[in-house]
Design a binder for these strands. Structure first.
Lengths: 146, 146
DNA sequence: TTCTTATTGATACCATGTATCAATTAGATA
DNA sequence: TATCTAATTGATACATGGTATCAATAAGAA
């Protein structure tokens, strides 16, 4: 339930603009990540990729995931079934909520995080250049169905 | 530079109260984690433990680290040299800052995080039960020495 | 001191991710 | 369209980080 929609075309364009080739495997993987409601691991993405293209290699998937991460198109989720799952980078500064019941993700308004960082910089004197926030719990739907 | 100090005695007491035995290896490891200024991995802790007790086994260290984590005495740091480093749990709700230059940790006032969670719950309708925040950058000292 | 059992160390093992390298293919050029 | 070149791929072997097993040890209650 991302608040903005993701356009796989843009990801392909980003690949191209960075001088990478647009290949079948990469198209498939981009489609998989861009449309998943849940954080995906490379292994899961591999399984899904082989459904539409059985001979897809494992190493290729790991390489592509790394490439997408380096391009900033997907981002690693920490603490949800380990630290090996990825979600699309929706806003640059992400306040990601993950439901521990259904596993679905929601991108919350990140203004509060921006404020928090600003405040903490002022209060501590440290210069904050990077942040990682993950929120877990029960989403609206799962609360009702409980 | 934790804002509160850590008392290894308390950790040993926590072990004891949970029905675990207080052993030499565990005392050594507790001392190592409680006094480190930097996040430590199990592998690093193993190296340090063997300096004072050479025959210490690797599996034992991994098991002890897991035990300390389960007891809530140490907590995993995400995104600092992977996700395998641990720091003492100082406040229950942690706003941990890690300097990317010197690696030292600082526990910031976590009231802003409490507010953020409260605000996000109200705004999204999700019930937030768990959070993970990590801040990175340049600490006060490293900014001056730059 | 004895006894029971949690804990330990050595080892083998497993899972996740990475390096290698010949074969393939995107896409630029003719 | 055919040709060419290097990025990409798939298969495999490998490395790393962590776990299961099991006999030997030691904590701490009796």
């Amino acid at each position: 339930m991302p608040s903005k929609t993701i356009n796989p075309e843009d990801w392909l364009a980003a690949l191209d603009e960075s001088g990478f080739r647009v290949t079948t495997v990469q198209e498939i993987l981009i489609d998989i990540f861009a449309h998943s409601e849940y954080p995906l691991s490379a292994e899961q993405a591999w399984d899904m990729a082989r459904q539409s293209r059985p001979k897809t290699g494992r190493a290729t998937v790991y390489r592509t995931v790394e490439k997408l991460e380096n391009l900033g198109l997907i981002r690693r989720v920490h603490g949800y079934q380990g630290c090996s799952h990825f979600v699309p980078t929706l806003p640059e500064l992400m306040m990601l909520f993950i439901c521990l019941t259904c596993g679905r993700t929601d991108y919350l308004d990140s203004q509060p995080l921006e404020n928090l960082i600003q405040h903490s910089e002022d209060a501590s004197g440290h210069h904050i250049t990077e942040s990682r926030l993950q929120l877990f719990g029960a989403c609206v739907d799962c609360q009702q169905n409980a």
